[in-house]
């Protein structure tokens, strides 16, 4: 167990959530170990809402990496007919913010050695955290593009070439140095979809674009008036955990 590296000012309970963009440490839990008796414990301010991320700049990616991830997200989820693509919906920002938090650092995962190659049924055996997988994967992708595809980075390639390369990664056919292209593709696809459909406070799904596309009403929680209205369109617009933009006063 590591010692606490938690920034000052963050409430210790924040550290218990998987989505907090702070480095989670086991040590932080220590203060919570306790005996509970005499009634249900309750304390004010004990609900931990997630902290909305800033939309500006990169926290994890370099500018070059950020541009590549934006381009990848825009091919995985392309813009069309007024529906934003992955880039405009903020998927790359979402991934960037996830990678500086507990997810990026693999803090929940079992990361003890020895690391061995197993069968597909045994699941991932990577020794690299998601943040490390992005750093290594994006470097390998960039090398592959510059060495083999005319000296340009992924973001500068024409869309058709980008699609071709992503398809080759998906099939495991692109030869990356030191990185399994298929595993990296699966990580990108999973995280891009998360960014497109997660609550907007995490940086993606900007203006609830993903939810509007499919008709998901978001963070509503009471459908008693609608359960009996079979085969009819649901009439209300989506709402996020922070509400709707027009609810927020200026």
């Amino acid at each position: 167990m590591g010692s606490s590296r938690a920034p000052r000012g963050i409430r210790r309970r924040d550290l218990l959530t998987s989505t907090a963009a702070a480095f989670f440490v086991f040590g932080a839990e220590a203060a919570l170990g306790r005996t509970v008796k005499g009634g249900l414990p309750w304390a004010p301010d004990s609900v931990v809402p997630p902290t909305p991320v800033s939309a500006v700049g990169w926290y994890f990616f370099t500018a070059l990496e950020g541009a590549a991830v934006e381009a990848i997200c825009d091919r995985l989820i392309p813009p069309d007919d007024g529906n934003p693509g992955g880039k405009q919906a903020g998927c790359a920002v979402f991934i960037d913010r996830q990678l500086i938090g507990s997810y990026g650092a693999a803090e929940r995962f079992y990361m003890r050695p020895p690391f061995a190659t197993g069968t597909p049924q045994q699941g991932t055996q990577t020794q690299f955290s998601p943040a490390e997988q992005y750093r290594r994967g994006l470097a390998a992708l960039d090398r592959y593009c510059r060495d083999g595809l005319g000296g340009k980075g992924f973001a500068e390639l024409p869309a058709a070439e980008q699609d071709k390369l992503l398809a080759a990664m998906e099939k495991g056919e692109a030869q990356f140095t030191g990185v399994n292209p298929r595993e990296f593709f699966e990580l990108l696809l999973q995280n891009a979809m998360e960014g497109f459909f997660a609550d907007p406070l995490y940086g993606g799904n900007r203006d609830m674009a993903g939810w509007k596309l499919i008709g998901f009403p978001g963070a509503r929680y009471d459908y008693r008036d609608y359960i009996g209205q079979h085969n009819k369109p649901f009439p209300l617009p989506p709402v996020a955990l922070q509400g709707r933009p027009e609810w927020i006063g200026r």
């Binding site: 218990l16 959530t17 998987s18 989505t19 839990e29 919570l32 306790r34 509970v36 249900l40 414990p41 309750w42 304390a43 004990s46 609900v47 931990v48 809402p49 997630p50 997810y103 929940r108 998360e194 459909f197 997660a198 609550d199 995490y202 978001g218 963070a219 509503r220 929680y221 955990l241």
Partner: peptide, 24 residues
Amino acid sequence: PWRDTSTDYPTTIDQDELRFGIRL
């Protein structure tokens, strides 16, 4: 940890697929 409705998953934060459904 200790967990209860009003402190750990009230309807102000519960409908968060990423946090609970995906990051578990």
